[in-house]
């Protein structure tokens, strides 16, 4: 079964990365979007790792 939350997070990260890249290519301030995408991706990985290790104990 598809993990809807994970799919939503991946969609958000990809959208932010795409928008950020397009905005930078247009010479506008897009680094904020890319930074936020990285923060969400990082937090998603960390929180899932913590949950997995907690459930395996």
């Amino acid at each position: 079964m598809i993990d809807k939350q994970l799919a939503f997070e991946l969609f958000t990260i990809l959208l932010l990365l795409t928008l950020g890249t397009l905005v930078i290519m247009a010479g506008l301030p897009g680094w904020g979007l890319i930074t936020v995408a990285c923060l969400i991706g990082g937090s998603s990985i960390v929180m899932r790792t913590v949950q997995l290790s907690a459930s395996s104990v």
Binding site: Q5, T12, I40, S43
Partner: peptide, 18 residues
């Protein structure tokens, strides 16, 4: 508290404003 509520809500709180 963001860590407590999970990364879904963080994603939502960024996507919804857009």
């Amino acid at each position: 508290l963001i860590l407590k509520f999970g990364s879904f809500i963080a994603s939502f709180a960024v996507l919804m404003p857009l």
